[in-house]
């Protein structure tokens, strides 16, 4: 599929010491390792690729059924199926040497030690990766990262431990399945995170009325897609009001209006997730139309959008 390549507006954004060519990233778990659909997408046009969560050892993931469509969304419970950090270093890092887009490595673990070991292994080799997104909020794994993501002290402790290990970007990915996402975000910020990303999927359930069965093997899964966009916008806006570090917004982004709304709510960058399943080239389309939007609305750059929403009260 042929897509445009002309970008005129200033779409660049900065997080920590890294400058990204545009704010359109693809979300972890929705774009594999970035190499799965070469005929349908020029990945070098993306702001960044956040690669699928890696764990210390490879993981097979959950038994089927793992996914189901829901109104304007889908529920997944993949269970962090992944190749493991060793194979990621061996097979994927050399491929990333040849890409010009930035690579953010998503890391998941079941305890602090696992996250630390993975980051130590990643930092022990030379690579072009720009940073790490720390999955402290996967809802689909027993003993998963959720206990970190719902607890301020655990979030702070993990952030501190990882901060010591890397000078690369450290982004903590926040769960919406908490009573107060802002306090978790502040814990990450105070412990040295460069940014937070929000939101991970919302815990959901789907039932087949005819058979009386749950549609997902693990009963509950992570709801994503346009159905969760209002939740994501609200959480990004709350975080923006209290945090000083950049916020990477996500949850149901399928077009440029969604990107603009997420940036107006306070996102510095955004991640396209579920929409990649339908069309892995959708990020490129959004980049082109965001460029038009910036030009047509007489803004100087994409950064003018950040936090610019006019609230009515």
């Amino acid at each position: 599929m042929k897509r445009g390549i002309l970008v005129l507006a200033d779409l660049k954004i900065t997080i920590g010491s890294e400058v990204f060519q545009n704010p359109i990233w693809v979300a972890s778990g929705t774009f594999g390792y970035g190499t799965e659909a070469p005929e349908l997408v020029d990945v070098n046009r993306l702001g960044a690729i956040v690669t699928k969560s890696i764990t210390r050892k490879p993981r097979e993931g959950n038994p089927p059924p793992r996914i189901v469509e829901t109104p304007s969304g889908m529920i997944n419970s993949i269970g962090l199926a992944n190749i493991g950090v060793k194979k990621y270093i061996q097979d994927m890092l050399p491929i990333y040497e040849n890409l010009t887009t930035k690579i953010i490595v998503n890391i998941a673990g079941t305890d602090v030690q696992e996250y630390v070991e993975i980051m130590e292994m990643m930092e022990s080799v030379s690579s072009v990766i720009a940073g790490y997104e720390i999955n402290i909020s996967c809802p689909n794994v027993k003993k998963g990262g959720m206990e970190f993501g719902v607890d301020c002290d655990m979030t702070a402790k993990l952030t501190e431990k990882l901060r010591i290990l890397t000078e690369r970007l450290l982004i903590m990915k926040l769960s919406p399945n908490v009573s107060d996402i802002v306090s978790i975000g502040l814990s990450a910020e105070n412990a040295g995170a460069d940014a937070v990303s929000a939101i991970n999927t919302v815990v959901g359930m789907s039932i087949d009325a005819e058979s009386g069965s749950s549609n997902i093997f693990t009963t509950y899964g992570g709801l994503s897609g346009p159905a969760i966009k209002p939740v994501g916008l609200a959480m990004v806006h709350k975080l923006y009001n209290k945090l000083s570090i950049p916020i990477i917004g996500m949850g149901g982004i399928v077009n440029t209006d969604d990107v603009v709304e997420y940036m107006m709510a306070g996102s510095t960058a955004v991640q396209v997730g579920t929409a990649n399943y339908r069309d892995p080239g959708i990020g490129e389309d959004i980049i082109d139309s965001l460029d038009s939007f910036i030009n047509q609305t007489n803004r100087k750059s994409a950064t003018d959008l950040i936090g610019s929403v006019r609230t009515l009260s």
């Binding site: 490879p58 793992r66 996914i67 997944n76 199926a81």
Partner: peptide
């Protein structure tokens, strides 16, 4: 059911018939 149809989502798995497979592997069991 499939999320994407080309390997991105990891949603459409079937168990392989192999009794020696382990859980700390990838793409061996499913």
């Amino acid at each position: 059911y499939m999320g994407c149809g080309f390997g991105l989502c990891q949603g459409c798995v079937i168990q392989r018939h192999n009794y020696e497979i382990r859980d700390d592997s990838y793409h061996q069991k499913y």
